[in-house]
Design a protein around this nucleic acid. Sequence first.
DNA 1: TCAACCCAGATTGTCTGACATTCTTGCAAT
DNA 2: ATTGCAAGAATGTCAGACAATCTGGGTTGA
Lengths: 223, 223
Amino acid sequence: MPPELNLRISPRTVQQETVDKLRLAILSGLFQPGSRLIESQLCAQLGVSRPSLREALRSLEAERLIEIVPNRGPSIPALSWSEATAIYEVRELLEVEAAGRCATRIPTEQLHELEKSLAAFEEAASSNDSLAQVMTAADFYSIILANCGNPILEEVHRGLVARISFFRGRSMSLEGRAQSSLAEMREIFESIAAGDEKAARKASKRHLLKAKAAAKMSMNSES
Amino acid sequence: MPPELNLRISPRTVQQETVDKLRLAILSGLFQPGSRLIESQLCAQLGVSRPSLREALRSLEAERLIEIVPNRGPSIPALSWSEATAIYEVRELLEVEAAGRCATRIPTEQLHELEKSLAAFEEAASSNDSLAQVMTAADFYSIILANCGNPILEEVHRGLVARISFFRGRSMSLEGRAQSSLAEMREIFESIAAGDEKAARKASKRHLLKAKAAAKMSMNSES
DNA sequence: TCAACCCAGATTGTCTGACATTCTTGCAAT
DNA sequence: ATTGCAAGAATGTCAGACAATCTGGGTTGA
């Protein structure tokens, strides 16, 4: 038996469920940026005790999905554009690297998965469900990151993407953004499928720069 | 009064103190990798209640400084070499970028700070206090990361460096490692001082590759 | 009228105590 | 030597409590 295989069964604890539920709620945009979260309300809604909830909130705070100010409690951070820019820049660094590595090492089986997720995004792109678009696009990138050969790269990337989910949702609803996004992602896929590392990096970079520009545009037009 | 200045005074809470104390203890190597932490013991040592301690542990878990397995409780993760390699690779990505950016934008005042921290490391390098060496070297990098113009880059980097503090301590005690580290860091400093972005990237990359090699050597020789 | 002040309610920070569940460990039995 | 079991230890979770702090609205004074 390979020793690195983790056979431990982990019973899901209340705290884990709580974190997952809250994270999902936040990423789905259930809470407005800047809005405060009331412990007692969350306890009632989630059906957990205050200590358990507070542990969950500390986890989310460390993930930067919420902010906790002493004596004011937790709230959803309102990301400024400069912060979002910083995140996009680091994301670019990571994603470009991941796409490049992925091109030379992804197994064919996973390549098929990648193709499937691209198809799923194509389907979502033709609809108007921007949440589905964001989710399927995230799947596409998850597969790339999962096959770049570096789990830390994947982990850090996931954390960063989560923090800009708000912007992703808004920019995806821009007129025509989903379609051009699809074209860019297909380019990335083709490069990876061809095993062309340089092309994969280029395509990935191009995609991210456009996504960033779209996010900025959606921000300026609305805020 | 500049509106972006954060004037909120944050009273230090028990939970924050607890996190800070525990983090410092972990980074100083007070606990053996793989060893388990007992809540009741920590409560007694830190003088805090179990709920407060558990909140602190959740924060540290999210930072990946400890692991918490359900029904087994918290423990110090024993990093495998492959995980450490993955961290070093991402660190390289971030640090090289930061050094490059830093070269073109660091203010002269901060450049002096960088020089001072280099001197501090030089002092530590001539001693045998490997903990001081790790600390002063970390300061040196902190200044670079703080002046790269991207706070997210800094944040992510800090998280990663913390997780390999164990390796850093051990590799720094290798014969001659501190001295060659000093030479490499001086090279980085000179490049940044000259405003030479490309040289800064090269020097930074060289330094990190050597640090990684040293870490690997220290691992093979001992474990 | 408007600003400063102050108070009641709401909310958070923290602790104590409790109990069921699960893990660990040492001993007994096969 | 391996298995099985029981006692003790440790964790997961909750309920309740209370002080410190924040918030919003009304009152007072200029």
